[in-house]
Design a protein around this nucleic acid. Structure first.
Ligand SMILES: [Mn+2]
Ligand SMILES: [Mn+2]
Ligand SMILES: [Zn+2]
Ligand SMILES: [Zn+2]
Lengths: 143, 143
DNA sequence: CTTCTATTTGCAAACGATTTGCAATTGCAT
DNA sequence: ATGCAATTGCAAATCGTTTGCAAATAGAAG
């Protein structure tokens, strides 16, 4: 018992909140996002969606991602090279380490780095609106 | 006297080193890069190049940027939204703060952050090949 | 200085990711 | 059930960037 609760965002409520209709394509896409453990790109979300309802179009995936991003329900990451990748905006802020060999994305968080960023911005006379910290690396050869 | 020396990279030597021909378009583009104090994108470099030699093409700008990037003579930055922006790979490593109102790019450097990144990657079993730290912010309202 | 050829160029067309116009469909307030 | 604005699928457009190709040229050799 006592599993760690993986929080699932209530997208439908968020959409209703935003005064936006809950359609079949949206329901499908939201479902996919809710239980995506990874950081899929639009094409991958489209593939997963088609597997559920083959009438969904790629345009709708893109439109829905933009909509969700707009209401802050998901984050868009433009990692080096590839297309945008998405993830539910649930849980605490974190940054990413991308395995340049496999494309795997590993999440991490450093309060210390976040503080230092604030400090730097303040010294430069700026307030941070958002930031992007991405580490690109490869697995260390087993010692 | 005793000005801070703004180092100008010897691109021509680097090119010769790479066994590549030094052509008129390349000379023009290299000149522009050498004394660019900013982080121009390909189109901007193209504009500056055309002002010097109107026969230069945008393709050549792109090809030259790729070439220079390949030999490590310049860095390419894919800041949020816009096209790639470039800068000579001279001087020490630094990261960027982008003014989301003006697009201005401010450089900064934090040994502490760099160390913490190493530490994080090591803990995750990775070695960093490169990284990207971008702060997006706006000028703090004058106090 | 000329000759020779591989490299580089400009141009136009192709590219991949994403966005958009439009007519047809659909959610949902009445 | 009705009516209409919101949403959709589709195809075409867009943006930044890359590429094929025939013409131009750098620079090594003589
Ligand atoms: Mn993440
Ligand atoms: Mn810089
Ligand atoms: Zn962060
Ligand atoms: Zn750095």
């Amino acid at each position: 018992m006592n599993q760690t609760v993986i929080p699932k965002p209530d997208y439908e409520a968020a959409l209703r909140e935003a005064g936006v209709r809950i359609t079949r394509p949206r329901r499908v896409i939201l479902g996919i996002l809710s239980d995506a453990g990874d950081h899929p790109d639009a094409m991958e979300i489209f593939r997963r969606a088609v597997a559920i309802d083959n009438s969904i179009s790629l345009s709708t995936v893109y439109r829905t991602m933009k909509l969700l991003e707009g209401i802050g329900a998901i984050h868009r990451h433009a990692f080096e090279g590839g297309p945008s990748r998405f993830e539910p905006a649930v849980g605490d802020h974190h940054d990413h380490l991308i395995d340049i060999e496999t494309g795997d994305v590993i999440e991490f968080q450093s309060d210390r780095i976040e503080e230092l960023q604030q400090e730097i911005a303040r010294e430069l006379g700026y307030e941070i609106v958002h930031h992007r910290l991405e580490l690109y690396g490869r697995k260390r050869r087993r010692r």
